[in-house]
């Protein structure tokens, strides 16, 4: 039991790190493009990495914090039917949904990791001026999906021992 809680808390920590990486990526993305406007308008110089890096940063913003978003209840589902169920059945449905989610995101994570591994083996680079080794952005993107699969694993484990599956913390979305 304590081992299990240690594991789920560890997964939470990892996912929070992922969210911070995504947040930094969002800040860098804004900075990168603000600088680009200034350098192209005032100095007739364009950062040769602006376009390329902006797309990688986008990938990190979209998917590095996705596991943390699951933990904080930010991903969207249609609750109309399940809400009508009695609590026990609702918990069971939630568990089944989490297991299904673990299956799908596990499949995605494996696909993304093996894509990143092939990229490393082949040595694929980008076709942009910097010829960035693609393993760097693809590796980080794959890590994002691994984090999501882990978040689903933690969710399943928590549901099994009747721990609360979501913790919105200060991020309880919603104006209501």
């Amino acid at each position: 039991m304590t081992a299990l809680r240690l594991l789920t808390r560890f997964i939470d920590r990892l996912n929070y790190v992922g969210a911070v990486v995504a947040a930094l990526a969002a800040a860098l993305l804004a900075l990168l493009l603000i600088v680009e406007v200034i350098t192209t308008s005032a100095f007739a110089w364009s950062q040769p990495w602006a376009i390329e890096f902006s797309t990688y940063l986008l990938a990190f913003v979209l998917f590095c914090g996705t596991g943390w978003t699951l933990r904080t209840g930010g991903h969207i589902r249609v609750a109309a039917v399940t809400q009508a169920l009695p609590p026990a059945a609702r918990r069971l449905m939630d568990l089944a949904g989490s297991v299904f989610g673990l299956g799908v995101t596990g499949f995605i994570a494996v696909a993304m990791v093996s894509q990143a591994i092939r990229t490393a083996e082949i040595g694929s680079r980008s076709f942009y001026p910097l010829a960035t080794p693609l393993i760097i952005p693809q590796g980080l993107l794959a890590a994002g999906f691994v984090l999501l699969a882990l978040a689903f694993l933690a969710r399943v484990l928590r549901a099994l021992v009747n721990d609360p599956v979501e913790d919105a913390g200060r991020h309880a979305g919603g104006i209501e």
Partner: peptide, 25 residues
């Protein structure tokens, strides 16, 4: 799996979406 991985990479890095996080921020 290969089709999915390629597609996720492609979507995640698509130029058309770059404005999204910025406007949300």
């Amino acid at each position: 799996d290969r089709f999915l991985a390629g597609d996720l990479w492609s979507t995640a890095t698509s130029a058309e979406l770059v404005t999204l996080p910025l406007f949300i921020l």
